[in-house]
Each structure stands twice: as C-alpha cells, then as structure tokens.
Amino acid sequence: MKADATSIKSHAASWIRSQGPLITLVVLLIFAVMRVPGFRSAVNITNIGKQVSMTGVLAIGMAFVILSGGIDLSVGSIAALAALLAARCSGEFFLAPILIPLAAGVTAGAMNGVLITRVKIPPFTATLAMMLGVRGLVFILAGKTAVVSGVSGQWFSKIAWGKWMGVPYAAMIFAGILGVAIVISRYTGFGRSVYAVGGNEEAANMMGLRVTRCKMKVYMISGACAAIGGMMLASRVTSVRPDIAVGWELTAIAAVVISGISLVGGIGKIGHVLYGVLILGVIPNIINRLTERQTTYANHLITGMLLLAVVLIQSRIAKKHNTH
C-alpha cells in the first residue's frame, strides 16, 4: 500500500516537473485574471491572441530547428522580407501576397539548409550570415521609402484584423499551424527523425536516417513559418519599413526555450511552444496594465526581471527532474 502511494506520488511529481511551462503559464494567468484590471476583457484577450500569433508562428518553425540541434537567427530578416514582398504584391494577382512571400521564405530557408548541410558551416554562423544578407536585401528592395500595405488588397488586411465568432483569424492561423506541426512531429517519419538528428546526429546517420534531407526540411519549414509571420505582420501594419521585425529571432528562440525545448537538441515537445509563446505574450501585457503611468523603460526592466524569474523557476524544476 505504502509503495503504491509513493509511486503515485513520484509519478505526479515527475509529471509536474515535465510540465513546468504549463504550470508557469497557469500561475501567470490566475494572477492576471484575479489581480490585473482589464486583463479579462475580450478586447485584451483578443489583442494578446493577435500579438502572440505572429512570433508564435516563427517559434513553431524555430522549434523544429532547435529540436534538430540547430538554430535559426535569420527568421526576423526573413519575416521582414516576406512582409515587404506581401505589401509589394498585394496589388498583383489573387493570392500573390501569400504565394510570393512564402516562396521567398522557403527559398531563404533552403539557402540556410544548403549553407549548413552542403557548405558545412555551423548553423549559428550560417544563419547569422543569412540574417545580415536578407536584411540587406530588404533594405535594397524597399528603396528610399517605406512600402504601404493593405490598401489595394482589402482581403489581405483581414488576416490580421478579421475575426470569426470573436476569434481573430491570426490566432486561428497560429493554432492551425501549431496543430499541423504537432501532427508532423508526432506521426511522420520526418518528425521523428528531427528528434533523432537532434539527439545524436552521428547515430541518426548510422541508423540510416537521411540527416541532410531532414535538416534541409527543418530550415525550409522555419523559413516558411517566418514568411507566414511576416505576412501576418504586413497585413497588420499600415506601412512596411525595412527595419520591421528586428529582433524577432530572439523572441522566437526565447519562446522555444521557455517552452522546455533544449537548445542541445532532441528534447522537448512542439506542442509546448504554445505555453512559451503565451508566457512571453502575457508578461508584457500584465506589466503594461499594472503600471500605466510608468515609462516604457521601467516596463522593459520589469518584463526582463519577470522573465528571469520564470526561467529561474523552470531551471529549478528541471534540475530536480534531472538529478533523480
């Protein structure tokens, strides 16, 4: 009897340890709902949904990359490229503002993949180069002026602003992509090989998995996700400037890491990206609502501190998980 009780207890404990991100999120939400004025309002929730959707999509692509043991610093630049192209092409043929940026994103991702798998440059360096290069391209394409978006294509701006039964399209897109990503990672050969490659690349190779192809796909997915994030951004803003989406790669990486996916590769669940993305979205929202009078610097500071607290708590939880 006693043994049973302890085993249930240890089971529960291990479940709790593996659910650090979810618990953190729930705690944050409970606090926000009870203590933060206006947090519960439909408008605010919708806003959070819209905000997190863009970087959320990027984070999904990033999660694949990080699970495969790599990193992709170029997603911010790719998102900017996609946003620019979407704005540019909104007057062209139907679906042009979707297809063209998507193609550009996948191409950029493929270039990352080629640099990493064929030229054999470490992911960090290769995607850093792409981050610089693509951003340069965005500046050149933009020319002297910012590009105006959403004017000629009414339907395009719906992506960001449209709603169905109160749920913004953006959030639905994010949820849809997340669902597809979960299925891919769980039920396809490719999805599983991502884990194997991230866990031990040499082993994956010797097991006969197609490591190169897997990595190519991973970076192409990341490029595509970045492009989708960029399109959502383009449909949201009134004009696309070339320095748009700067630093998004860091947000995406942070979301992925907070969701419990290890930068070492091979460990974590794609579905948990949702928690990471929401944690990163809810924190600034809470702070903005609590400290309406203060300057934005102070808000940044508090956001940073809170983020630190989240990461610290999770590391404590994970530490216990590892040592026993």
Partner: peptide
C-alpha cells in the same frame, strides 16, 4: 559505440 537516440 552505441548509436541510438537516448531521448526516444
């Protein structure tokens, strides 16, 4: 040297 994926 065992070539397997430890987390799977």
């Amino acid at each position: 040297e065992l070539n397997l994926a430890p987390y799977l």
